[in-house]
Design a protein around this nucleic acid. Structure first.
Lengths: 237, 237
DNA sequence: GAGTGGTCTAGACCACAAT
DNA sequence: TTGTGGTCTAGACCACTCC
């Protein structure tokens, strides 16, 4: 290798990314075989074990399917249970034939706490954008969305008004989102959330914590608070 | 290598299992360091890369935490479930390296209400089987499972004891399950559920309502109650 | 039999943490 | 400086699939 250059990202990561890009570009269709390890190793100029690691991880992630003695294939897109298909709340309400509206309660820049800094990969105290919005269905509050946004991903976030477009729609417009991670739990609301939802602090809420990422960093973290009785996540297999 | 013996399971898998067992046996406590790769490689009599793979996978599974330059540590227990899969709670707990046990609280035949009759496609007042089980992880109640079962699908349901096999495992054994439907909501537990979960009636619970079907009818409907703070559903895209 | 993935080796150099 | 994990190499043998 002539190169003295140090790439920050390991070789197998680069290979994963390259393969992901080429799959996204439909270089290989669903169910189609990608080149064997030997070939990829030669093409990328690495040892077979390095390609193997990239392929193993993509397989574990459900992107590829491997069959010993046969080959490596592009996996069919995973059908996310609709439990996961947490949709744009405005669309969802419109689909029910109801009236949707929202109110922007906060839109500000806040210094990152240590935890937040770690999550977003920025320095503690560095600015993060924050929006708090209440979403209503037929005038009934149905979700309070408390969102932190990475300024590097959406530098003009604070200039939005979020009347015609939800933050999540805006974000997916300005930055291609590569993935999301969810947690769902039951919690009691604080005073402020309870007030916005027009419920008591003793009424249980369904809280969806959602982290979205672009290719290389965390774009946004949202806490979605719903009255437990009014809101349900549903899905099937 | 003198050995001609073929172990069906690969070496790194055996190493993973061995480490899981030793963690379960509290050979190393939470946050404590396990021996470095070098040492493990010597002890197991394998190359460092083989130990490395075992440790990588346990790290990815959340069992270990690794810090470059420092060491490998036993991760704090997670209490998570994938939204994506219908998993057996016993397996899930075992996978975390924890101790699972359960208690059968009720096992009876009940007359179907009108709603239930409609759901199961039987006549109102016709018998339905019902079981109530509390599932525990390291002696902490983590789920109360209140389940109704279609007697036509599992006629011998009441003869089970559900000690070594959960109802869901039993059902998928006696009847091929064709699909499932979920609802998740936040609710306050009634007196009985709260007692079984050892929480207060004011503590919010995450309730998963799950209906499973065979090819042609509803096999079972379950209410799975979890303490809101202890239990989270997680998923990603 | 040829080609594929699954696993394993015995080294190596590096970045980073602890000291 | 020493020890740790992170990565990579250039081979190897095997089980399996496909022809």
């Amino acid at each position: 290798m002539t190169s003295a250059e140090k790439s920050a990202t390991p070789r197998y990561q680069q290979i994963k990314q390259d393969l992901l890009d080429r799959i996204a570009a439909k270089e290989w269709g669903i169910g189609e075989a990608i080149p064997p390890e030997q070939t990829l190793a030669r093409d990328f100029g690495v040892a077979r074990m390095t390609v193997n690691r990239a392929l193993q991880e993509l397989t574990q992630a459900g992107v590829l399917v491997r069959r010993r003695g046969s080959g490596t294939y592009v996996a069919p897109p995973r059908v996310h249970t609709s439990l996961l298909q947490i949709r744009n709340i405005a669309d969802e309400i419109a689909e029910r034939g109801h009236r949707y509206d929202s109110a922007l309660l906060r839109l500000e820049s806040v210094p990152a706490s240590a935890d937040q800094a770690l999550l977003f990969g920025i320095e503690t105290g560095a600015p993060l954008f924050r929006s708090v919005i209440v979403h209503r269905e037929n005038d009934v509050p149905i979700q309070v969305e408390d969102r932190l946004v990475n300024p590097e991903v959406a530098p003009h976030y604070l200039a939005q008004r979020f009347k015609t477009q939800t933050p999540s729609a805006y974000l997916s417009m300005v930055a291609p989102l590569a993935g999301a991670h969810y947690t769902v739990e039951a919690r009691l609301p604080g005073r402020e959330i309870a007030a916005h939802l027009a419920i008591s602090t003793k009424d249980p809420c369904l809280v969806v914590l959602r982290t979205t990422r672009t290719e290389d960093r965390v774009a946004s973290q949202a806490e979605l608070w719903h009255p437990g009785q009014l809101y349900q996540l549903t899905g099937g297999v």
